[in-house]
Design a protein around this nucleic acid. Structure first.
Lengths: 191, 191
DNA sequence: TTAAGTTTGGGACAAATGTCCTTTTTTTAG
DNA sequence: CTAAAAAAAGGACATTTGTCCCAAACTTAA
């Protein structure tokens, strides 16, 4: 449930350690800080070095839908680079967070000059699409309880790591409904 | 709502027309033919030359969730290439369909040797992610009527082009609920 | 043109989820 | 340790969506 991308993290770690270029800068965030704002124009691609962040979209009524929880190695901001577009989602730190940033120009340079990086970015995008396809189809085809159970199985530390309102917004339901499902699963001794 | 990718279509059209290579083959399907099966290993990347297809996932109970409607220029099968994985979704023709196919090796060759193609594929993947993010957040944050109305606005020929069961499976609701919403919107003179 | 077959729409009720607000539990300040 | 404040849980009712099935409308064959 918390996405990670170890191969990308390893690769970027090496580039960042290489003193001969300064493609990559590093930035620290304490919890609950906005890393990118919904609707921003952005000039940097971001990759998570450590920590957890949430990527979410707020609609006109102020309702929130959490797209993904980002963990180590996850890249973001790249979508907007490719489409020369404003950000669709906000990204906010949930723990202490360390982020690698690469400027638009350096990102393109790396993509063009480094086939390994190019491949890693292609794979990262493909993984995001696959993940979304499965997640959304599940969430439409199953009732809340089933989805919650699935989540708990994939990620046993769920309730320790993620606050309830976030779990609710990730499942696309209200907190009330989430509580109901938790209670019912507990009564059935399923969680 | 029916995805298209004109820039990719134009590019591929040129490569296909170039007699000096035979990277690209062409295939015809009549309506309601399976182009790729869910769970297949695939060895080709596909790009739609003309026609419409649906991309959908069937769960254990036989319920269907339609991910996207593919129109001209849409690439598919690429996700599975990058992740060396089985297909998550099936793709089925809805009209007469003409498809360009590129073998795994030629696809990689093109990606490596042709920066323009590389960029187009990156952009295609990014567009898919953005589309899914917006679509799914809408579908969670709005009631059926709102989503149906949105769809109808984006795509006025909706009811002429797409069969009702498909619209229902795209919205992630039952046909009964779709009918209810249609009736209610008609009564309010909104469609 | 009509009767059987087939498809489409909708009624009635059931189940799931949301809204609103009160109760219970936890945290904080003094 | 206690009272106030804040956060979390849940009761009661409303609304939305789903299930099941029957009725209406449309096709088809004779």
């Amino acid at each position: 449930m918390i996405r990670i991308n170890r191969e990308l993290l390893d690769f970027i770690g090496k580039i960042a350690a290489d003193e001969s270029n300064n493609f990559i800068s590093q930035h620290n965030f304490s919890p609950k800080k906005i890393v990118i704002e919904q609707g921003d124009k952005i000039e940097f691609v971001h990759i998570i070095k450590s920590g957890i962040a949430k990527c979410y979209l707020t609609n006109e009524d102020g309702n929130i839908f959490i797209q993904e929880f980002f963990g180590e190695g996850v890249i973001f901001g790249e979508i907007e680079m490719f489409n020369e577009d404003e950000t669709v989602c906000a990204v906010e730190s949930m723990t202490d967070l360390v982020i690698y940033k690469i400027s638009r120009n350096n990102f393109y340079k790396l993509l063009e000059e480094n086939p390994q990086f190019n491949r890693l970015v292609l794979r990262a995008l493909a993984a995001k699409i696959k993940f979304k396809a499965i997640r959304y189809s599940n969430s439409h085809l199953n009732p809340i309880e089933t989805n919650l159970l699935l989540l708990k199985k994939q990620f046993p530390e769920l309730f320790k790591t993620i606050a309830k309102p976030d779990i609710a917004n990730y499942l696309g339901v209200t907190e009330r409904s989430l509580n109901r499902s938790i209670k019912s699963l507990r009564e059935k001794k399923l969680i």
